[in-house]
Protein backbone atom coordinates (compact mmCIF):
# COMPACT_ATOMS: atom_id res chain seq x y z
CA UNK A 1 0.00 0.00 0.00
CA UNK A 2 1.10 3.51 -0.75
CA UNK A 3 1.01 5.94 2.17
CA UNK A 4 1.00 9.63 1.27
CA UNK A 5 3.50 11.59 3.34
CA UNK A 6 4.12 14.92 1.55
CA UNK A 7 6.61 16.36 4.00
CA UNK A 8 9.71 18.46 3.66
CA UNK A 9 12.76 16.48 4.72
CA UNK A 10 14.14 19.55 6.48
CA UNK A 11 10.86 20.35 8.22
CA UNK A 12 12.37 19.82 11.69
CA UNK A 13 15.06 22.40 10.90
CA UNK A 14 12.46 24.75 9.42
CA UNK A 15 10.37 24.53 12.61
CA UNK A 16 13.42 25.30 14.76
CA UNK A 17 14.34 28.20 12.46
CA UNK A 18 10.82 29.58 12.85
CA UNK A 19 11.18 29.40 16.65
CA UNK A 20 14.56 31.16 16.45
CA UNK A 21 13.06 33.91 14.27
CA UNK A 22 10.34 34.52 16.84
CA UNK A 23 12.88 34.57 19.71
CA UNK A 24 15.09 37.05 17.84
CA UNK A 25 12.07 39.25 17.07
CA UNK A 26 11.02 39.24 20.74
CA UNK A 27 14.57 40.24 21.67
CA UNK A 28 14.58 42.92 18.95
CA UNK A 29 17.78 41.56 17.46
CA UNK A 30 18.63 41.61 13.75
CA UNK A 31 20.36 38.36 12.75
CA UNK A 32 22.82 38.15 9.88
CA UNK A 33 23.94 34.78 8.52
CA UNK A 34 27.39 35.16 7.00
CA UNK A 35 28.55 32.42 4.65
CA UNK A 36 31.48 31.72 2.35
CA UNK A 37 34.07 29.14 1.40
CA UNK A 38 36.88 28.55 3.94
CA UNK A 39 39.52 31.26 3.94
CA UNK A 40 37.58 33.99 2.16
CA UNK A 41 38.02 36.34 5.11
CA UNK A 42 34.74 36.25 7.07
CA UNK A 43 36.48 36.56 10.43
CA UNK A 44 38.77 39.37 9.23
CA UNK A 45 35.77 41.28 7.85
CA UNK A 46 33.92 40.85 11.16
CA UNK A 47 36.95 41.97 13.18
CA UNK A 48 36.90 45.22 11.21
CA UNK A 49 33.11 45.55 11.04
CA UNK A 50 31.87 45.31 14.63
CA UNK A 51 34.03 48.19 15.91
CA UNK A 52 32.90 50.46 13.07
CA UNK A 53 29.24 49.83 13.97
CA UNK A 54 29.72 51.24 17.46
CA UNK A 55 28.46 53.33 19.15
CA UNK A 56 25.14 53.10 17.26
CA UNK A 57 24.94 49.31 17.07
CA UNK A 58 25.93 46.74 19.69
CA UNK A 59 26.78 43.37 18.19
CA UNK A 60 27.26 39.80 19.30
CA UNK A 61 28.73 36.95 17.28
CA UNK A 62 28.13 33.22 17.00
CA UNK A 63 30.90 31.56 15.06
CA UNK A 64 30.76 28.05 13.64
CA UNK A 65 33.67 25.84 12.73
CA UNK A 66 34.22 22.12 12.60
CA UNK A 67 37.16 22.40 15.02
CA UNK A 68 39.20 24.95 17.03
CA UNK A 69 38.21 28.14 18.82
CA UNK A 70 40.68 30.24 16.79
CA UNK A 71 38.02 32.46 15.23
CA UNK A 72 36.27 33.11 18.54
CA UNK A 73 39.62 33.97 20.16
CA UNK A 74 40.29 36.52 17.40
CA UNK A 75 36.79 38.00 17.53
CA UNK A 76 36.74 38.20 21.35
CA UNK A 77 39.53 40.78 21.09
CA UNK A 78 37.03 43.17 19.48
CA UNK A 79 35.22 43.29 22.84
CA UNK A 80 31.87 41.95 21.59
CA UNK A 81 30.31 38.81 23.12
CA UNK A 82 31.31 35.75 21.08
CA UNK A 83 30.23 32.12 21.25
CA UNK A 84 32.09 29.46 19.30
CA UNK A 85 30.23 26.41 18.04
CA UNK A 86 32.40 23.47 17.06
CA UNK A 87 30.24 21.18 14.93
CA UNK A 88 32.64 18.33 15.66
CA UNK A 89 30.65 17.86 18.84
CA UNK A 90 27.58 17.32 16.66
CA UNK A 91 29.21 14.98 14.15
CA UNK A 92 31.47 17.35 12.22
CA UNK A 93 28.61 19.00 10.39
CA UNK A 94 29.36 21.11 7.34
CA UNK A 95 26.79 23.77 8.26
CA UNK A 96 25.04 25.29 11.27
CA UNK A 97 21.55 23.90 11.76
CA UNK A 98 18.79 25.95 13.37
CA UNK A 99 18.73 24.08 16.69
CA UNK A 100 22.49 24.57 17.14
CA UNK A 101 22.17 28.32 16.53
CA UNK A 102 19.15 28.44 18.86
CA UNK A 103 21.09 26.73 21.67
CA UNK A 104 24.06 29.06 21.23
CA UNK A 105 21.82 32.15 21.13
CA UNK A 106 20.16 31.16 24.40
CA UNK A 107 23.62 31.19 26.02
CA UNK A 108 24.18 34.81 24.94
CA UNK A 109 22.84 37.81 26.81
CA UNK A 110 21.05 39.57 23.96
CA UNK A 111 19.67 42.44 26.05
CA UNK A 112 20.96 45.63 24.49
CA UNK A 113 22.28 43.77 21.44
CA UNK A 114 20.87 44.98 18.11
CA UNK A 115 22.88 42.81 15.73
CA UNK A 116 23.70 39.12 16.06
CA UNK A 117 26.08 37.90 13.39
CA UNK A 118 26.32 34.18 12.74
CA UNK A 119 29.57 33.29 11.02
CA UNK A 120 28.65 29.98 9.43
CA UNK A 121 30.95 27.04 8.73
CA UNK A 122 33.14 27.77 5.69
CA UNK A 123 31.31 26.00 2.87
CA UNK A 124 29.49 27.31 -0.21
CA UNK A 125 27.14 24.32 -0.47
CA UNK A 126 25.31 23.11 2.63
CA UNK A 127 24.76 26.30 4.68
CA UNK A 128 22.66 27.68 1.79
CA UNK A 129 20.12 24.93 2.41
CA UNK A 130 19.58 25.48 6.14
CA UNK A 131 17.40 28.29 7.47
CA UNK A 132 18.67 29.32 10.92
CA UNK A 133 16.03 31.99 11.60
CA UNK A 134 18.12 34.84 10.25
CA UNK A 135 16.86 38.16 8.87
CA UNK A 136 19.44 38.46 6.09
CA UNK A 137 22.18 36.43 4.49
CA UNK A 138 25.47 37.58 3.03
CA UNK A 139 28.04 35.61 1.07
CA UNK A 140 31.73 36.49 1.05
CA UNK A 141 33.81 35.65 -2.01
CA UNK A 142 37.49 36.55 -2.18
CA UNK A 143 39.28 37.52 -5.37
CA UNK A 144 41.67 34.57 -5.02
CA UNK A 145 38.84 32.08 -5.52
CA UNK A 146 38.02 32.48 -9.22
CA UNK A 147 35.37 34.35 -11.15
CA UNK A 148 33.13 31.35 -11.78
CA UNK A 149 32.29 30.53 -8.15
CA UNK A 150 28.79 32.06 -8.37
CA UNK A 151 27.98 29.78 -11.33
CA UNK A 152 29.39 26.74 -9.52
CA UNK A 153 27.44 27.44 -6.30
CA UNK A 154 24.26 29.07 -7.62
CA UNK A 155 22.01 28.29 -4.65
CA UNK A 156 24.30 30.20 -2.28
CA UNK A 157 24.29 33.30 -4.45
CA UNK A 158 20.55 32.98 -5.08
CA UNK A 159 19.56 32.82 -1.39
CA UNK A 160 21.83 35.64 -0.19
CA UNK A 161 20.79 39.29 0.10
CA UNK A 162 24.24 40.79 -0.50
CA UNK A 163 27.72 39.71 -1.53
CA UNK A 164 31.10 40.91 -0.32
CA UNK A 165 34.02 40.61 -2.74
CA UNK A 166 36.99 40.53 -0.36
CA UNK A 167 40.78 40.88 -0.65
CA UNK A 168 40.56 43.55 -3.36
CA UNK A 169 44.01 44.76 -2.20
CA UNK A 170 45.38 41.68 -4.02
CA UNK A 171 43.87 42.60 -7.40
CA UNK A 172 47.09 44.14 -8.81
CA UNK A 173 48.83 40.78 -8.34
CA UNK A 174 46.13 38.54 -9.80
CA UNK A 175 44.61 37.81 -13.21
CA UNK A 176 41.19 38.20 -11.63
CA UNK A 177 38.46 39.66 -13.83
CA UNK A 178 36.26 41.60 -11.40
CA UNK A 179 33.74 42.51 -14.09
CA UNK A 180 33.33 38.83 -14.93
CA UNK A 181 32.61 37.84 -11.33
CA UNK A 182 30.09 40.64 -10.89
CA UNK A 183 28.43 39.65 -14.16
CA UNK A 184 28.26 36.03 -12.93
CA UNK A 185 26.65 37.15 -9.67
CA UNK A 186 24.14 39.23 -11.64
CA UNK A 187 23.12 36.19 -13.70
CA UNK A 188 22.16 34.35 -10.51
CA UNK A 189 20.78 37.29 -8.55
CA UNK A 190 20.42 40.44 -10.63
CA UNK A 191 19.69 43.03 -7.95
CA UNK A 192 21.98 41.78 -5.20
CA UNK A 193 24.31 44.48 -3.85
CA UNK A 194 27.99 43.58 -4.25
CA UNK A 195 30.46 45.31 -1.91
CA UNK A 196 34.07 45.25 -3.05
CA UNK A 197 36.14 45.36 0.12
CA UNK A 198 39.55 44.66 1.56
CA UNK A 199 39.50 43.53 5.18
CA UNK A 200 43.23 44.27 5.28
CA UNK A 201 43.08 47.92 4.18
CA UNK A 202 39.36 48.51 4.96
CA UNK A 203 38.88 49.88 1.44
CA UNK A 204 35.20 49.70 0.49
CA UNK A 205 34.01 49.33 4.08
CA UNK A 206 31.83 52.48 4.29
CA UNK A 207 29.28 51.19 1.75
CA UNK A 208 29.12 47.76 3.41
CA UNK A 209 28.75 49.28 6.89
CA UNK A 210 26.03 51.64 5.65
CA UNK A 211 24.07 48.76 4.08
CA UNK A 212 24.36 46.70 7.27
CA UNK A 213 23.29 49.61 9.49
CA UNK A 214 20.23 50.19 7.29
CA UNK A 215 19.24 46.53 7.52
CA UNK A 216 19.52 46.59 11.32
CA UNK A 217 17.63 49.89 11.61
CA UNK A 218 14.81 48.57 9.41
CA UNK A 219 14.14 45.86 11.99
CA UNK A 220 15.10 47.28 15.36
CA UNK A 221 14.68 50.99 14.66
Amino acid sequence: MEVKVVKKVLSVNDTMAHQNRKYFSDKKVFVLNMMSSPGSGKTSILEKTVGRLLPEINSAIIVGDICTTNDADRLAKTGVPVIQICTDDFGGDCHLAAHIVGNAASDLDLDGVQLLIVENVGNLVCPAEFDIGEDARVVVLSVTEGEDKPLKYPLMFRVCDAALLNKTDLLPYLDFDREAVINNIRQIHSDMPVFEVSAKTQDGFPAWILWLKKQVEKKVG
Partner: peptide
Protein backbone atom coordinates in the same frame (compact mmCIF):
# COMPACT_ATOMS: atom_id res chain seq x y z
CA UNK B 1 14.55 23.61 -4.41
CA UNK B 2 12.39 20.64 -3.42
CA UNK B 3 13.53 18.12 -0.84
CA UNK B 4 10.25 16.40 -0.07
CA UNK B 5 9.08 12.93 0.84
CA UNK B 6 5.99 12.28 -1.29
CA UNK B 7 4.99 8.81 -0.14
CA UNK B 8 6.14 5.45 1.13
CA UNK B 9 5.12 2.05 -0.20
CA UNK B 10 4.75 -0.42 2.65
CA UNK B 11 3.52 -4.01 3.03
Amino acid sequence: RELDIVSIEVE
